[in-house]
């Protein structure tokens, strides 16, 4: 039961849903593609190639982004980087604060994550709590050699000492604003808007 509306990088109580077209576009489809290309190159550069690399997207849009990054790496390197998904729902620190949520897929690539360099991929980095949950979730699955973080948008306002290694766009925001990431695979178009 995936939601049909775009997901907002914001807590839900800031303003009502006023439709997907409102807000200011900060990245269009071309910007978004360019940002992912740059992230892909940076990952390869940092990792000195694609060896022992695993991309784990955080559902839902992080998984689509991980697949796009893997495709771009494949174009450059000619090697298929394993891609998986990591659901963090049960590891969230606000699990008890809202009604029980449906689980999303966790799919670990066949080679596992032990001794791999795992790049977590998410769409928006905000408080850092999701990434904290993802690190915990990963702990129950294996022991990577290193964990990196790639996000499409970093909008600031961290609650935890977490930072991204690869950022598509740094986007200064106020806490009253919402950031919406829309992806072709899920929302029918590529864009990042703010309102």
């Amino acid at each position: 039961m995936p939601p049909t509306q775009p997901e907002l990088a914001e807590q839900p109580d800031t303003g009502s849903e006023t439709g997907p077209d409102t807000g200011r576009t900060v990245l269009d489809a071309r910007d978004l593609s360019r940002a992912l290309t740059r992230i892909s190159h940076e990952i390869l550069e940092r990792n000195r190639g694609s060896r022992d690399l695993v991309l784990l997207g955080i559902p839902t849009r992080g998984v689509h982004l991980a697949h796009r990054i893997a495709a771009k790496i494949s174009e450059v390197e000619g090697i298929d980087v394993p891609v998986g998904s990591l659901d963090v729902t049960m590891y969230r620190d606000d699990l008890r604060m809202r009604p029980a949520r449906a689980l999303l897929p966790t799919e670990i690539p066949p080679g596992g994550i032990d001794d791999k360099t795992v790049v977590l991929v998410d769409d928006v980095l905000y408080s850092g709590r999701t990434i904290r949950a993802a690190l915990d979730a990963m702990n129950d699955i294996g022991r990577p050699r290193a964990v990196r973080l790639a996000v499409l948008v970093d909008r600031g306002h961290r609650d935890l000492p977490i930072r991204a290694d690869f950022v598509g766009k740094n986007l200064p925001t106020s806490t009253a604003e919402s950031v919406a990431v829309r992806l072709e695979e899920h929302d029918g178009e590529d864009s990042v808007t703010i309102r």
Binding site: P3, Q5, P6, E7, L8, A9, E10, Q11, P12, D13, E17, I58, P59, T60, R61, G62, V88, T89, R92, D93, D94, M97, R98, P99, R101, L104, D122, D123, V124, L125, Y126, S127, G128, R129, T130, A133, D159, T175, V181
Partner: peptide, 13 residues
Amino acid sequence: STGPTTGDGENDA
């Protein structure tokens, strides 16, 4: 159910 949040999930506590 309280607004789409799971993609980034960075909803504040």
